[in-house]
Simulated assay, not measured.
Amino acid sequence: MVVKLLVKILVGFFCLFGFVNPVIYGDNFGELLEAVITHLQCGDPDNLDNWTKDMSLALRRDQQQRLAWNIPWVEIQDKGASQLEMQQQLNPSNPLKLRLWMSFYWHLKRSRSLDPILTTNFALKLRELQKRNEDMWSPALQNMWQSLPKSLKIILQSRWLCLQHKRQMLYVVSGYKLELGANSNCSMWQIQSENQDHWLRLINFCDDSSLFFINLWHSSAEVGMLQSNPSLKASKFCVFNKVGYFKDASKADIDCQWQVNDCSNLPKILNQNKHVS
């Protein structure tokens, strides 16, 4: 089906020709698609940003959507750009670029190519859009958010976490003690950014000397590791016979696997229970 388009775009530095040149797209959808592919293969973020900004004004929403969902991502990646480079290049700054970014995500999702780093980067950008760009938020972005790993969503949107052992179901509280259930404020851990390599510091509500470190890049699975320092080589907090301790461990060690729960409302729940009793 041919989409009627007549768009005159100044594309800046066009990587195929190397000079500023007005490009006129006729009524052939294929020509427009080829132009998008060319811009994506250029690897010039500024050029792509300016071009998609102009195209966002020139195309209707349905035209932008059709364009984004017909991008041959496999072909583009086969010709040079890595997945991480493509993700960075598609950082959404206008409506068309946002649709291209979403299309790329679902391509990676369908092809099972989303590694922890890519997943975390998508999640962080979605959270940023959710909090700071409400005008860009949409049901399509909400669906994208819902498709992310549960643990990663909990970490990014919670003020306080509770940390539960995956196998023994015990909660770690202040002083690295273990309890059956999140029964007090001392079960709560505040999230603070370490501002390096996606590390987060978890500080206990009752004792700020009780702390763990987790890495967002390694939190896209449903289980994670609680570490003594912001280093992948640091010792992990494990449980054996209901006793907690730090040791060197791998991801496969079931004694050291934890899951996170959102405990932001725990003080309110505890207060209500106190009044009831």
Rank of each mutant, 00 (worst) to 15 (best):
H107M: 03
F29R: 00
L148W: 01
D135T: 06
D46P: 01
E194V: 12
V243A: 08
Q64A: 02
G224H: 06
S231A: 10
L161A: 03
I154N: 04
D135F: 10
A234S: 13
R132E: 11
V276D: 09
A35T: 02
D253G: 07
M102K: 09
L16R: 13
S138I: 12
S138T: 15
S174Y: 15
L59S: 01
S103R: 03
L96E: 01
Y105I: 06
P45A: 08
Q196M: 09
Y171A: 10
N195Y: 07
V3I: 15
N215K: 12
N50K: 04
M86Q: 04
R99G: 02
N94G: 10
L16V: 11
K125I: 14
E31M: 06
N28T: 10
D46V: 04
K4S: 15
I203R: 01
I76P: 01
F29A: 04
R60I: 02
K109S: 08
P72W: 08
Q168I: 06
N121Q: 15
K247Q: 14
V243I: 14
D135V: 08
L98C: 04
Q146M: 10
L226P: 00
Q168M: 12
Q89G: 02
Y25Q: 06
A68K: 00
A252D: 15
C206S: 14
L161K: 01
E128A: 11
Q257P: 13
N21K: 15
F246R: 01
L211T: 08
K242V: 03
Q64V: 00
I76R: 14
L129K: 05
N21H: 13
P45Q: 09
F212I: 10
D78P: 00
F29H: 02
D46I: 03
V20C: 11
N47I: 08
P22R: 03
R99C: 03
L114P: 00
D253F: 05
E128C: 10
A182L: 04
D54I: 06
L33V: 09
M169K: 15
E134I: 12
N94C: 14
N265I: 12
I76N: 10
Q63H: 05
F17Q: 10
D78H: 10
M169S: 12
